[in-house]
């Protein structure tokens, strides 16, 4: 019984992972674009990017999810619950990832841009070949944190009928009256997923780390 029980909850993992795999990269692409606009876009563009970040960080993810799925989907665009959920989470995450990345871009320093321009690179070339490779390295640790948050927030898609880990645990808790077992199983799965993500990114950080000592 416990075996079956666990297996039912575990089936939600693929949904959780899939939602995360859409939301995180979407958030990264949007976040990077916004961070670049914020740092290099000039006064008004930068203000717009900041406003976007402020609004999206202020909106409860569930509200955005409802707006996108119940109100916009079917009228402006057609989205399945899965896509509506993943995109909502990606949009919210993009605001947080923007904050992470703009901090990292700023931390790289003006000097690197100046030096790149001095050898004839265009602004875009400098951003691409000099600034971003350094900023990404700085962004990995806080980004790892954001990845865990998105992974856990992905449970929100249950609100529009995508049966992920947490929803399945809720159902079994109601059926069996064993909330400790049901939510314990869910917590364990989340823990393993978050652990794997963080460990993976730690390894990436270690691998891409620049040598610091004098040789």
């Amino acid at each position: 019984m416990v075996n079956q029980f666990f297996s039912y909850i575990f089936q939600g993992t693929s949904v959780t992972v899939a939602v995360t795999l859409v939301a995180l990269p979407l958030g990264l692409i949007l976040g990077l674009l916004l961070a670049l606009l914020y740092n290099y876009g000039g006064f008004w563009v930068s203000r717009l990017a900041a406003a976007y970040s402020l609004i999206m960080r202020g909106v409860p993810p569930i509200a955005l999810l409802f707006i996108l799925y119940f109100l916009l989907s079917g009228r402006l665009i057609n989205l399945t619950p899965f896509w509506a959920g993943s995109i909502s989470l990606g949009i919210i995450s993009s605001a947080y990832q923007m904050e992470i990345l703009r901090g990292a871009l700023q931390a790289v320093g003006e000097g690197q841009m100046t030096a790149a321009r001095a050898i004839g690179m265009s602004r875009l070339q400098a951003i691409r070949y000099i600034i971003i490779p350094q900023a990404i390295r700085l962004a990995i640790p806080p980004w790892s944190n954001e990845a865990s948050i998105v992974l856990k927030d992905s449970s929100l898609v249950y609100a529009i009928g995508v049966p992920e880990i947490l929803r399945r645990a809720q159902q079994l808790s109601a059926t069996t009256q064993q909330p400790f077992l049901a939510f314990g199983a869910a917590a364990l799965i989340y823990f393993v997923l978050v652990f794997l993500v963080n460990r993976g990114l730690d390894l990436l950080a270690e691998k891409t780390k620049l040598p610091t000592s004098m040789a």
């Binding site: 000097g111 690197q112 100046t114 030096a115 790149a116 001095a118 000099i130 490779p133 350094q134 390295r137 620049l210």
Partner: peptide, 10 residues
């Protein structure tokens, strides 16, 4: 050439 070198750190 700059006072503080400004090599690309990566």
């Amino acid at each position: 050439v700059f006072q503080n070198f400004l090599l690309f750190n990566h």
